[in-house]
C-alpha cells in the first residue's frame, strides 16, 4: 500500500519548479491545446508532434525531473493507450486494407499511431505539471485562477480548501487502509484468491471501517478548525504569496512559439501538399 505514489510531486529546485503555479496551470492547458491543434492528415502530422515532443523534453530538462519518472507516468496509463489504439486499428473502416481481405486499413493504422502520440504527449505535459507543482500549490493556483467565478457567487475559496484537504488526507487514509487490511487479514480475510465478485465482496470489511474513520477524521478536523476560528475568504492573508516573474515570461514565450510553430506546420505543409 505504501508504494502507491499519488500526486507524484518531485521535489527539486529548478527553473520549472520556481515558476508561478497559476502560469504553469495555464501553460499546461495551452500545451494540451497545442497538441490538439496538430492536424490529423496522415502525411505531415508527425512534425507538429515532434515540435510538442521537443518542447516537453526541453521542459523536462529544465525541471530536473528524471526521465524515467516521466516514463513511469506513461506506464501508468499504458492500458488506456493500447485500448484506444486497438479500437482505431480494428474499427476504422476508412482507407484501403493493408492486405487482401484484411480488416486493418492504412487509415486505421495512421489513426492508431496518431491517437497514441496524442495521448502520450498530453500525459507527459500533465505529469510535468504535477511533478513540478506540489498539490497545495496547484490548489492555491486554481483558487486564484477561479477568482472571477466569485461574481456568480461560486464559493471559490471553499472549493480550493476542499481540494487541498482531500489531497492532504490521501496518504493518511492509505496508512489507515493498510492497518485495516492487516487487521482483517489477521481475522482470516482473503483478498488474493477467488473471482472478481468474491474479491470485491472481500473489500467490504475494509471499506466500511475506512468510511467510518474518514467521517470521524472530518468531524475532528472541522472541530479543530472551528476551535481556531477558521473562516474562509475575506481578509485572509497568505504565508506564500504567488508572484509572476521572469521565468514565467520565458515559459509563456516558449509556449507561444510552440503554438505558432504547430499552426505554421499545419498551414504551410497543408498548402504545400
Amino acid at each position: 500500500m505504501k508504494d502507491v505514489s499519488f500526486g507524484q510531486y518531485y521535489p527539486a529546485r529548478s527553473f520549472v519548479h520556481k515558476m508561478d503555479a497559476r502560469v504553469k496551470i495555464l501553460l499546461a492547458i495551452a500545451y494540451i491545446v497545442a497538441v490538439f491543434l496538430v492536424k490529423s492528415e496522415p502525411e505531415f502530422y508527425f512534425l507538429g508532434f515532434a515540435a510538442c515532443f521537443l518542447f516537453v523534453v526541453i521542459a523536462t530538462v529544465c525541471s530536473r525531473v528524471p526521465f524515467f519518472k516521466m516514463l513511469k507516468s506513461v506506464k501508468a496509463i499504458i492500458f488506456f493507450v493500447v485500448f484506444s489504439a486497438v479500437l482505431q486499428l480494428f474499427f476504422n473502416k476508412k482507407g484501403t486494407p493493408l492486405w487482401e481481405g484484411g480488416f486493418i486499413t492504412d487509415a486505421g493504422l495512421y489513426n492508431a499511431a496518431f491517437i497514441t502520440a496524442r495521448i502520450i504527449l498530453i500525459v507527459l505535459g500533465a505529469s510535468l505539471l504535477t511533478f513540478t507543482t506540489s498539490p497545495v500549490e496547484i490548489a492555491d493556483g486554481l483558487e486564484s485562477l477561479l477568482t472571477p467565478l466569485k461574481f456568480i457567487k461560486f464559493p471559490v475559496h471553499e472549493f480550493a480548501l476542499v481540494m487541498s484537504i482531500a489531497l492532504r488526507f490521501i496518504p493518511t487514509l492509505l496508512d489507515e487502509t493498510d492497518r485495516i487490511i492487516k487487521a482483517q487479514k489477521s481475522r482470516g480475510a482473503d483478498f488474493e484468491t477467488g473471482n472478481v465478485f468474491k474479491r470485491v465482496k472481500a473489500l467490504i470489511p475494509v471499506l466500511i471501517p475506512l468510511l467510518i474513520s474518514s467521517f470521524r477524521r472530518a468531524d475532528e478536523l472541522a472541530d479543530a478548525m472551528d476551535a481556531r476560528c477558521y473562516s474562509g475568504s475575506k481578509n485572509r492573508t497568505r504565508y506564500k504569496k504567488m508572484k509572476i516573474g521572469w521565468r514565467d515570461l520565458i515559459g509563456t514565450l516558449v509556449l507561444a512559439a510552440l503554438i505558432t510553430g504547430v499552426v505554421l506546420l499545419n498551414g504551410v505543409l497543408g498548402v504545400a501538399v
Binding site: A183, S186, R187, P205, I212, S213
Partner: peptide, 29 residues
Amino acid sequence: RAKVGMVFQYPEYQLFAETVRDDVAFGLK
C-alpha cells in the same frame, strides 16, 4: 492466523458488520 490472534492498536476500528454477532463470527467463517 487462526492460531496466532492479533489485537491491534485501537481494535475497535476494525468493526464493520451490521450486528456484533456477525462481526464476531467473521473470523470463524
